[in-house]
Amino acid sequence: MDIIVNRINGIWSEFLLMSDHGMQVGIMDYGGIVTKMLVPDKYGRSENVVLGYENYQAYEQNPFYFGALIGRVAGRIANSQFTIDGQTYQLKANEGTNHLHSANHGFHQAIWQAEPFQTQDQAGVRLQHTSPAGEGGYPGTVSIQVTYTLDNTNRLTIDYDAVTDQTTPLALTNHTYFNLSGNLRDTVARHHVQMAASHFAELDKELIPTGKWLNVFGTPFDFLNGRFLEDGLLSNHPQVKLVGRGYDHYFLFDVDGNENEIIVTEPISGRKLTLTTTQPGVVLYSGNGLESGVPLRNGISQKHLGLCLETQAHSAALNHTNFPGILLTPEKKYQQQTVYQFGLRYVKTAHIFQCQDVRDIG
């Protein structure tokens, strides 16, 4: 295991976590952003499997939220307001009349305090941030720690921990776009996804959940036995068309436990991602809103180039009681975990990377 620290324009730091078996993960203190993720394919070639900007400075705005930590609340809050104990809190609208991903006070634009750590079998970075009461319109001072850990089984773990001094909404996630084809060789249309989720949240024309849960049976939203994403991208299902032909929907896992699982495979590269999480559900987003022509690491952006697996409880809980709750109180501690285990559908030979240096970028 190893860690390289890259200095970016004298302002940010990027921590490159490296396993002994060909996997590398880049994480910035700015936004807690995953900048790259190199994973071996069935031939042992390590290639990038996430979307990121070619120019680091593009992360300063990051309208697509590439790789970012999202909070205080991931997702859309209807009419940019919510009520707790009879008091209404007004937030900034940044998508029509709605509030998306905490607008310009989101954690994706914060510089986190970073502490790298390393053992024989792990390399990681602990990120800490305090959001003061009233920031972005939210009540309470919230202290957050997010820990990224890469181990020698090519497993990346994200641990989320937080406390508050006043009841407040909190729904954290990571917004990495995955593309297992490697180096953006293809769209995610031929990615095969399987997960145990029998229901998904119906959306209205503003992509806000209506409060109704729809059964996946007989629809392109049925991933119970697995299906290729192109089944949805090519579908005329009203919910597919509503979001720009694709997926941008919240799926509720069938089991309320610590081993909720999503399996994603890409047949040509042979790469396999097994995601497990303590979260109650996931927003499956197929990159429907990605613009064409943005310079990325390894290529140019286009629609459906990446797949987000935003494990979370949903902001719709602020308006609908049939969603998992997102209110954090001073008596409780927020603790969630999502694990990304990379492997292959076939036997591989590991490549070993060894590198120790510090570089300046930009």
Rank of each mutant, 00 (worst) to 15 (best):
T157V: 08
D159F: 12
Y160N: 03
Y160M: 04
A162E: 02
P169N: 09
A171D: 13
A171F: 10
L172K: 07
H175N: 09
L180I: 05
S181A: 12
G182R: 03
N183C: 14
L184K: 00
R185K: 07
D186N: 12
D186F: 02
T187S: 13
A189S: 14
R190M: 08
H192G: 01
V193R: 01
Q194S: 05
Q194M: 07
S198K: 04
F200V: 06
F200Y: 15
K205S: 14
E206H: 11
L207M: 13
I208L: 15
I208Q: 01
P209K: 09
P209A: 08
K212W: 15
F217T: 14
F217G: 12
T219A: 14
D222P: 03
F223T: 06
G226N: 11
R227V: 09
R227W: 07
F228W: 03
F228R: 04
F228C: 01
L229D: 01
L229W: 01
G232V: 04
N236L: 15
K241L: 11
L242H: 04
G244D: 07
G244W: 01
G244S: 13
R245P: 01
G246Q: 01
G246N: 03
D248I: 05
D248Y: 08
H249C: 15
F251T: 03
L252A: 10
D254A: 09
